[in-house]
Nucleic acid binder design. Structure first.
Lengths: 196, 196
DNA sequence: CATTATTGTGACCAATCATTCACAATAATG
DNA sequence: CATTATTGTGAATGATTGGTCACAATAATG
């Protein structure tokens, strides 16, 4: 029998194991069995710490949301120039995805987005938060002269998020075949050119 | 017993039924049973016309690829101004997605992209084709003065594709809750502003 | 019109999945 | 140390899924 740990600990382990499974084999491979294997525990023990698969989804969404938004909000609250903030957020997001390929896969997974309305709403809300944050920075950037006049902060923010998402998702879906960092650098440089 | 039709016809019906199922309930709901129901035939009859589910995936990819790329290539070959070509491609893509919400869901589905290497490569190739086409138009646009100097055609094309993809995918994943056309118009206008 | 090829169908099967449960081991409590 | 609460586990279960098969109905062919 395995060591006994508190549910608190076990829940974290399970969430991390789940994210690992998604990163390695995709959401489609996220079964109780594969999670159990990755977390080195029995399937039935997972039910000791989570009500069911849906609860694990919620915990995953919470973890990812905190990881992504927490960082972005911290950078946004800093005192650097707007364009530097944007750049830092951009690359920290890419780095996070690089370390956790499961993130984009999870966020854009149908199982999650279409299978559970409450969860879909939560993710949707988080994404809007993210856009708001980016738009705020861009607005400040226009005022300070980092970016040019006449552009829409909100649409420019959506464009940036679109770049981040399509880059991460393509990378995660293509089996991580290309170097996401170099790819990100090229597209960021061009975005910055477009913006000013 | 149902009317007898040639496999040729049946295959088309099955592909359309499958795309319909995905548009209504997602790739996760794409089972032989739901396809059979949507196509109004028995499950076993589907195996009469397709070797298996994977073959249906391939047929779907072919159909979608033709629908998306065919239109884009035709527009690109036309004689309008580059920025008009880009705009027409953009909105025709959005319109296509509006009519077939299954398209973005299918393209970014894990079941497809991670479950079948050959299929993933085919889709990847198509997407690169699409980027090439857009990049070609943008390059011409820079030469003709539609767009400004100093921007990268390829990265700008990726940015546009990113916009298209994230808009369509968000819309399809959010249960089609917002008006994709108005959303697309706003973001297109801003993209054009950024580009010139 | 008789024969053959093609298409349609219900019954069936093995695999996979999420979940439950009775029971065992360990930790916490008084 | 005795009792109780918590955590771990193997076996079992019902539902769903992709796929097969023998057989039936229809169309094509000579």
């Amino acid at each position: 029998m395995s060591e006994k740990k508190s549910t608190h600990i076990r829940q974290e382990e399970i969430v991390q194991a789940a994210l690992k499974v998604i990163g390695q084999k995709g959401v489609g491979a996220l079964t109780i069995a594969t999670i159990a294997e990755a977390a080195d525990m029995t399937e039935s023990n997972i039910y000791r710490h989570f009500g069911g698969k849906q609860d694990i989804y919620f915990a995953l969404a919470k973890f990812i949301g905190n990881a992504v938004m927490g960082k972005a909000a911290a950078i946004a609250a800093g005192s650097r120039k707007p364009w530097e903030k944007l750049e830092t957020i951009f690359f920290s997001h890419i780095t996070l995805v690089l370390k956790n390929p499961g993130i984009p896969r999870f966020i854009f997974s149908e199982d999650i987005r279409l299978g559970n309305k409450k969860l879909a709403e939560k993710i949707s809300l988080r994404l809007n938060n993210y856009i708001d944050t980016l738009a705020g920075i861009i607005e400040a950037g226009i005022a300070e002269g980092d970016f040019r006049q006449g552009i829409s902060p909100r649409e420019s923010a959506k464009t940036l998020l679109g770049i981040i998402q399509s880059t991460s998702l393509s990378w995660a879906m293509d089996g991580k075949s290309f170097n996401i960092k170099t790819e990100a650098e090229k597209i960021w440089r061009n975005y910055l050119t477009l913006m000013r």
